[in-house]
Nucleic acid binder design. Structure first.
Lengths: 231, 231
DNA sequence: CGTAACCTTGATTAAGATCAATTCTCGTGG
DNA sequence: CCACGAGAATTGATCTTAATCAAGGTTACG
């Protein structure tokens, strides 16, 4: 079996075939269907996941039952790594748990589970791997910083930022439009608002001929104006 | 000179005397007065800082001139490490810059500057250090996650959370009160609101006999109620 | 083609930002 | 030691944004 796809995962990129085989042999591939829970907050920690296909949302539920999405994770990215490293320097072997909930966004979402124990050994042996992980964490930190900054802006601005970011990521594919990878409900939750407000915000910037919305398809008509709106 | 205080810095804790000396010899101690800028966003990256005395705020300025505080940093904690690791796996040697602004909060704020070049060598040699750094990043990530979650709550709730967190950190000192380490303006900016709203929120929970405010001194009168307010 | 999930629209309400004064605090110089 | 003045904090009145409540409309899929 060809497992070289594992090299698409950032911090495995420099491992040799034997090391990849070893990782693959101790990790497990799991399939999830749309809406299926991968783990719950407070559930005991067993390891972190890598998305191979599909998508995942990471979210919290506040006591009044509201959902707040922290991240969307797509292929070759990881989630649930934080407790693994918090654990590392703890003297006491207290139980660690997942800090948030994770749910599959699509049918046939395929994940690789890397169990904590097996991963520590790898880290010990591959100096480059911890640097790669550091770089991954740095990216997440930068992303969260942006997100926090964004949450103090008003909704149309937050939305404009999101669209610009998505557009940037999908650019180079020669397309003038992109498809939302999640439901509008999930997008609303991610930008920190509710369905109705998102709907109105989308309508507003559509009425100003800045974007065109067609179901999940969003076409940017005027990038200048959009950038100005996002500031 | 005794430089064993460096071991209070989390990821230096397991280094031996020689290694500490080496770090100290290549890093520089800098003093800042209240309000003085340490670096500006977009300024070229030279390395990261460790707070030895005093305090620092990390913030962004939005185009309308509003300030948004992302973190407060106090002794033995680091800031500005993110670009160092983003750089690490970049092939092109493009210029890196600080992702936000940093300002000293107090007079005689003392910082240790660790330049990127010198630090890479250390990382190469000390496997344990990158694990420690990973653990530090993990803590920051968890902190930011909480902060994001918090920003979708209303102001009294955000404030209650902040006070509980501060109280927790200062507990064990036998005190029933604690002192705000920053101006109310900075606190307002940190919890994502403005001075007036913070003032009213403080008054509100004071009127409910949950806390007592006296300048920068905050006494928690009813921890139960406060926790309930924070959820 | 029917039903549930998803999305949009309208009317109303509530939270917090804005604008405009005061009041408080504290360091400095007379 | 007191008076002044600047920055910090508070208070009140008003306005804006977005959440809430309540229907409808659309879409996808069995």
């Amino acid at each position: 079996m060809d497992i070289s796809f594992l090299r698409k995962i950032h911090f495995f990129s420099e491992l040799n075939d034997d090391e990849l085989k070893k990782i693959f042999s101790v990790s497990s591939v799991k399939n999830f269907s749309k809406g299926e829970m991968i783990f719950f907050e407070t559930e005991p920690y067993i390891g972190f996941y890598i998305v191979l296909e599909g998508g995942v949302k990471i979210f919290k539920i506040s006591k009044d039952g509201r959902e707040h999405i922290l991240y969307f994770i797509y292929p070759y990215n990881t989630f649930g790594e934080v407790p693994m490293f918090e654990q590392y320097d703890k003297v006491s072997k207290e139980e660690f748990s997942y800090p948030a909930n994770a749910m599959a966004l699509e049918d046939d979402t395929k994940l690789l589970l890397i169990r904590s124990g097996t991963f520590y050994n790898l880290l010990e042996k591959n100096k480059s791997m911890s640097l790669k992980m550091l770089s991954g964490f740095a990216k997440k930190l930068r992303h969260l910083n942006k997100h926090i900054e964004s949450l103090t802006q008003d909704v149309p601005r937050r939305l404009a930022r999101y669209i610009l970011d998505e557009k940037k990521q999908k650019s180079g594919e020669g397309k003038e439009y992109f498809e939302l990878r999640m439901s509008k409900h999930d997008l609303a939750s991610y930008i920190g608002t509710i369905d109705e407000t998102l709907s109105r915000a989308l309508k507003k910037i559509q009425d100003e001929d800045i974007i065109e919305v067609n179901g999940k398809k969003i076409t940017v008509l005027d990038k200048q104006k959009l950038a100005k709106l996002a500031e």
